[in-house]
């Protein structure tokens, strides 16, 4: 190997080493979450690993309100996902497949929520709810409305990307084979776009489930899971929080791995 080759080989290894270190930085906190789900804390103060136990896993709902807050987050997440995915997918179809006036404005309106800090989105919504006389009714439905709003843009972007990458000749072929517009849509277009819609729905659910800053402003007395964690962080963190975090991680990981295996199988078959 020439000297230049050696240097290049070394350079490649160094870049890879650095990349692995950065990945480690990104993943260490996840490892801490999993580790702490087996922790038996010696005191409520401080956040250290004291002793190993399985109690947290057998008694997830132990801390007051923990499981209620998870239930509320799942309910809001599912509802917001269904509505945001439906509205967002329709918008994506309109943007990619139809001509209309005001397309530039529509594009900006879809992009802006993603480019605004959450604190601004949340305070705007709170200002609206208060001046519309809903200050006393903040809760489940105001959170739902807020979550649909910020999930919508992400759905449009995700579904648009899938639609734009779709070969229009497939639909033309269906039409040539005497399928009407309705049949073409349900038998050809929709199945091809479906992975994009599914990805958008998963993204929506995780955004909704994880949101704190906006929710905190518009939630009133309703406690979602992130709000429970926030409250607990001030009082002393029950280890069960990490059990929920670990379960979330494993579920999402399983979904991604299944999706990956599926797409590989499809590529081969």
């Amino acid at each position: 190997m020439s000297r230049l080759g050696t240097r290049r080989w070394l350079g490649d290894r160094l870049v890879m080493l650095f990349a692995v270190l950065v990945l480690l930085y990104m993943l260490v906190p996840v490892g801490v979450v999993i580790l702490m789900s087996f922790n038996q804390p010696a005191s409520r103060q401080g956040y250290t690993f004291d002793a190993f136990t399985l109690d947290n896993w057998t008694n997830i709902c132990g801390p007051y309100q923990l499981c209620d807050s998870v239930t509320i987050s799942i309910q809001i997440g599912l509802l917001a996902t269904v509505v945001a995915t439906a509205l967002g997918a329709l918008m994506a179809f309109a943007m990619v497949r139809h001509r209309f006036r005001g397309r530039g404005t529509a594009n900006v309106a879809i992009f802006l929520p993603m480019a605004s800090p959450e604190i601004v989105l949340g305070s705007s919504l709170l200002a609206l709810f208060v001046s519309a006389g809903f200050a006393g009714q903040l809760g489940f439905w105001t959170i739902f409305v807020a979550h649909v709003m910020f999930c919508l843009s992400f759905v449009v972007v995700t579904v648009k990307a899938r639609l734009a990458g779709l070969d229009p000749r497939l639909e033309q072929a269906a039409m040539d084979l005497y399928a009407n517009e309705w049949q073409t849509f349900w038998r050809v277009t929709f199945p091809l776009v479906f992975p994009g819609i599914l990805a958008a729905a998963l993204l929506s659910f995780s955004l909704s489930f994880d949101d704190f800053i906006i929710t905190n402003l518009v939630s009133g007395q309703t406690v979602t899971f992130p709000m429970f964690v926030w409250g607990a962080a001030q009082r002393g963190i029950p280890p069960q929080i990490n059990v929920v975090g670990t379960i979330m991680f494993l579920l999402a990981l399983a979904l991604v791995v299944i999706g990956e295996l599926n797409s590989r199988r499809r590529l081969r078959g």
């Binding site: 702490m36 704190f212 991680f249 990981l253």
Partner: peptide
């Protein structure tokens, strides 16, 4: 695999991960 690892932190809650830094950076 590396791409999945990049998005893996998103699989669990933002707040809980930030709390993990309390432990990682703590005096102990």
């Amino acid at each position: 695999l590396m791409l999945i690892l990049v998005i893996a932190p998103f699989f669990t809650s933002f707040l809980i991960r930030t709390l993990s830094w309390q432990m990682l950076l703590g005096d102990n």
